[in-house]
Structure formats: structure tokens, C-alpha cells
Design a protein around this nucleic acid. Structure first.
Lengths: 72, 72
DNA sequence: AAGGCTATTTTTAGATC
DNA sequence: CGATCTAAAAATAGCCT
């Protein structure tokens, strides 16, 4: 197979919608994973809230975030 | 210099406090950076809230998070 | 505590299905 | 939309100062 060269990506809006949606999905999960790891490694509480460009909400929080921090 | 082998780390509480504090600091920044990148790449709004084990608050939000999402 | 180094691990862009 | 693959880029553990 042919080896493809890829450019190092720049941190600017991804213009092509399908690629932007794929990146949104992949990176969103990446952040949630990192948040979960941080909470376990360092016994900290982490919450992440993301609104997509279309207004859809995605969120993650470590299990005791809300109670430990007296949000509820 | 001697090449050191490192074990792949396990996602469990880091027992040694100084190492845990360093990891907390490094990974916290890593997550904030990822959050900032996601918001730019995908025109999304991202907020991250972290409480350290000692209760100290750290947070990040993309610039229009609060207004766009009518939090304020 | 904070910052640099670097081997290694992890994430991810782009393709494909 | 989601999963898998892979080379390349990025994050980071452990060490140092």
C-alpha cells in the first residue's frame, strides 16, 4: 500500500462538515476519557460540558462530582 | 545516558503524593488544551470544571460558553 | 513547586468499510 | 452515524535541575 503523507493539522475551524463531525465525535470522547482518567489517578472530581455547533449537549462527570461539590 | 524502561501506567490512584500532584497539574492542563482545541476545530462550546482532592477549583470554558448557552 | 527532557504511550486524521 | 486501521502527532511518566 501507498504511504500517505498527512499535514500536521492547524487549530482552526474544520470547514468540511463531515470531517468536522467526525473530529467532534472523536475528540469529545477523547476528552471524556482524559477526564475520567484524571479523576481516578488524582482522586479529583471532573465535569465536562460540551455543546455542539447545533446546540446538542454532551456531558461527563466523575461519579461523585455533583454530591461531593454540593451541586445537589 | 542509560535508557530507562517505563511501565505503561495503570489508571488507578497514584499513591505517591508528589507524583500525584505533578500528574494532576500536567493532565489538568492537557484537558484544558484539548477543550480549547475542540471548541475551535468544531465551533463548539466547552466547559471543564475540576476540583482537586483538596477541594481547589480549576475551570476552563470556551469564551462564549456562558452567554451562548444562556447560563448568564 | 515549577519547568525541561525524552522514551514511550496515547490520541487522532484520514481513509475505508 | 459508528467502527476499524495505521502512520503521524501529541501527551505524558519518570527523571532531572
Amino acid at each position: 500500500m501507498v504511504k500517505m503523507m498527512r499535514e500536521k493539522i492547524k487549530i482552526k475551524k474544520i470547514d468540511y462538515l463531515p470531517a468536522r463531525q467526525v473530529t467532534f465525535s472523536k475528540r469529545r470522547r477523547g476528552i471524556f476519557k482524559k477526564a475520567a482518567e484524571l479523576s481516578v489517578l488524582c482522586e479529583s472530581e471532573v465535569a465536562v460540558v460540551i455543546f455542539s455547533a447545533t446546540g446538542k449537549l454532551f456531558d461527563y462527570s466523575s461519579s461523585s462530582f455533583l454530591t461531593r461539590n454540593k451541586v445537589i
